[in-house]
Design a protein around this nucleic acid. Structure first.
Lengths: 354, 354
DNA sequence: CTGAAAGCGCTTACAG
DNA sequence: CTGAAAGCGCTTACAG
């Protein structure tokens, strides 16, 4: 066999054994063109004659050819891997986000590598940089709270890595942002409770290390203000987005006199804690206390009473984020599909007379 | 510059910008050896003189050299990616498993790519094959229920992909298996309820499509038998590992006369449903009904009463699985760390007299 | 619009 | 124990 000539494809169609996949050389030979021309077709170059392109595409389809991502990556000096960099420990959030990213990547030839991290670690930035540079990642999607860390955005710029930040509010240029607009969810929660007649309304916010805590609280206050109400300081508590902190804050709030008749918790975990504390203190929900959460994770439907909450379409957000990263924004989708929405269940009810 | 001579490393140490990472050629030149010898050091070949090796290792360390996984993969005809192939939709399980895999892969140079799938899809096997062959995966970890699908194991053999199956009981050769031994958990649940004095004990099993359903049930029956008890047919129900199926099955069981005084649910989701049904029917737990679950996911601590359950160390199982896949079994860990263990909380109590 | 040459950063196969 | 040549499957840079 002459040097440089591609070998015949063996074992074609037997279905058994690891048969050799066709390469760009095979396609070039079969289509009677140079491999550079095949490369142009793969990369959607405009400089290919229509007839030539169609012939090559037919051969590609016939043989089920797919370019080797490693070889392509080596030549491009960039891999076809997209990283999910996250530190939010909520399993439901992580899984929904992953599913959304995979939705958006389907058929793109990219693959998803996951990278949980710890912002408090001394080696956080070094590790992240090593991960990205070693794998020559195409880009990363950052979710809260890493998405809110300016050191991370600066790092991405410094090493030339594409990135999209998912955050509750815009903190970067539009091409780097997907906003979840948590503020609107806070407003909806306030409107719901006010419309039910509640006036002594409390709030347990998340930790200041999450920007969403502030957005949800400010949205809530804005919603109250729009109805002539306000969040009284004695009815405001700062939690940690955890079940335990929800219990602790609710226990304090329910000891106050007069007691609040409604509590808006910054997330479902804390709302679960509120229901727990209320039960322990003999306060009936929703009879004596209306409770609203935020997230609409599965736990919301498992609680008793089931939880009124704000749904954030995390999966859809993930899909949008990765499409923006790949430069394939899909503008057809209505923006409303990605906005927070109120889901009314059993944990909230009208203010009891008297 | 002469052909083949490596360029100088520019921009070294400035810290800013995407400085060029050193390559095998840089290391070879700096150490005064051929790149093949550097390659031998990278791949831990024994055929390198101790002195030469040490000199090269020093240069590697000094310059923070790490071989390019894409170039290495291209030459090896195999990537340094490990796939997690799963169809269990429980977020907590997925996240714990991912964390365990990442634990085991730390420092190995491998990365984790996630691949959720649907066994019922027509294109399931084709998609899976395409994913593995296109990315030339080093290997995959399979979790239930895909891990129990013989078509998948056969496919791995056919395309020459390494794999490890995580399953409740051995269904393959030892090098391909990590057993979670769910049967032991079922036995522990039976022992716990029997020791509390219960005699009318019911069981809601998972769907037959999960091998764990059978293992948990058979372990439970064995545990009862060891104490002279048995699972009466009228007290046995088949659920679907879902909250809703737990409610439905419990509603049936709690209508029976005489009513069972204890229910062992095949997982926590169904146990949550049991507690829900009991509450709706005015049956107090644990006063009138003891409930035991399986998994010890976060929901177990959020329920009221908090759930007695069987903890499966999923993260540790994941760590072991990926280490087996990489051929780096860590025999130091005691086997007991990976066995199911009973966690007693509030949902189970002694049989009431009379 | 198309192609021959060189190169991405590694390893294999062969020599010595 | 060590190295020069060829190759993995692609793309870039240059020519035509």
């Amino acid at each position: 066999m002459a040097k440089g000539e591609a070998p015949q494809i063996e074992d074609q169609g037997t279905g058994a054994g690891p048969r050799r996949r066709p390469t760009i050389n095979d396609i070039a030979r079969l289509a009677g063109v140079s491999k550079k021309t095949v490369s142009r077709v793969i990369n959607a170059s405009p400089y290919v004659q229509k007839e030539t392109r169609e012939r090559i595409e037919a051969v590609i389809a016939e043989h089920g050819y797919a370019p080797d991502p490693q070889a392509r990556g080596l030549a491009f000096r960039r891999s076809f891997l997209i990283g999910l960099v996250y530190d939010n420990p909520n399993p439901q959030y992580v899984v929904n986000m992953q599913l959304g990213l995979l939705d958006g990547m389907k058929g793109s030839g990219f693959e998803l590598v996951v990278h949980p991290c710890n912002r408090a670690s001394d080696t956080f930035l070094t590790d992240l940089r090593g991960f990205i540079e070693r794998q020559k990642l195409f880009g990363v999607v950052l979710t809260p709270s890493v998405s809110e860390d300016e050191r991370v955005a600066a790092l991405m710029g410094a090493i030339g890595c594409e990135y999209v930040r998912v955050a509750s509010v815009s903190v970067d240029a539009p091409q780097h942002m997907i906003e979840t607009r948590d503020r609107l969810g806070g407003e909806a929660a306030a409107g719901h409770l006010a419309d039910l007649g509640h006036r002594r309304i409390a709030h347990i916010s998340g930790p200041p290390s999450f920007r969403s805590s502030r957005e949800r609280r400010e949205g809530f206050e804005a919603g109250l203000a729009a109805r002539g109400l306000k969040l009284e300081p004695q009815y405001a508590r700062e939690g940690a987005y955890t079940f335990e902190s929800g219990i602790a804050c609710a226990a304090e709030l329910l000891k106050l006199s007069p007691r609040p008749t409604a509590i808006f918790a910054g997330n479902d975990e804390m709302a679960a804690g509120v229901l727990q504390a209320a039960r322990q203190m003999g306060v009936a929900a929703p009879g004596d206390l209306s409770v609203v959460g935020f997230d609409d994770f599965e736990i919301a439907r498992r609680l008793w009473p089931s939880l009124t909450t704000i749904r954030t379409p995390t999966r859809e957000i993930g899909r949008l984020a990765v499409q923006r990263l790949m430069g394939r924004d899909d503008e057809n989708r209505a923006e409303k599909d990605r906005l927070p929405v109120l889901v009314v269940r059993e944990s909230s009810g009208p203010l009891k007379a008297g």
